[in-house]
Design a protein around this nucleic acid. Sequence first.
DNA 1: CCTACTAGTTTGCGCCGCAAACCGGTTGGT
DNA 2: ACCAACCGGTTTGCGGCGCAAACTAGTAGG
Lengths: 98, 98
Amino acid sequence: MNQQVRTISELDRVIHEPGRLIIVTLLYAVERVDFLYLLHETGMNKGTLSSHLSRLEEAGYVEIAKTFRGKVPQTLLRLSPSGRKALERYRRKLKEAL
Amino acid sequence: MNQQVRTISELDRVIHEPGRLIIVTLLYAVERVDFLYLLHETGMNKGTLSSHLSRLEEAGYVEIAKTFRGKVPQTLLRLSPSGRKALERYRRKLKEAL
DNA sequence: CCTACTAGTTTGCGCCGCAAACCGGTTGGT
DNA sequence: ACCAACCGGTTTGCGGCGCAAACTAGTAGG
């Protein structure tokens, strides 16, 4: 079992999933954003986006804050420090592997 | 929906799966190899390896040839031309996305 | 013979991504 | 005042997938 193999098998599966990789990549650039922005930017439907965000929250990679914009609910998302590190680590490993 | 997002969502899911990425990466380097070599090199168990290989065969990325080494069966694997292209394409896209 | 081993394949399970259905609240029409 | 339509998400259900345990067909050893 060579080093390349080991590197690939250590990839973070939470981030590796393309849907979540997209989310995390977007969040990495903007620091703080709302659900609807992500919805349009990712091109996903609401259910898919919501469940990926929950999974990222469980992993401690994304922080979800619910507020109101006037009277309509608004969900704000940001990448946690641990999420930023996880993405950076993921990118490093991937480049190393390819 | 920006370009980075589009690139990620176009990633080939057959290759994206880490188990298969490992297999394809190994095959890319060696041209032709048997099941047991892959088994040891990947660190997978036989069932996992077998099913990933079947999936890669269905996708047209790997060619599976069954022969005998003396009296014991031997399964030989090679990356098809389309498999090579798929991996190259996958790598390009991924680098582009990160 | 008959038990153990080799070289895989198949089965079964549990998790996951996905979209349809749902839900609490708000706005607009009459 | 009512109620239908809409907004901003969440939950449910389903199909597919990765994984390892169980199985299979054949070989070798005692």
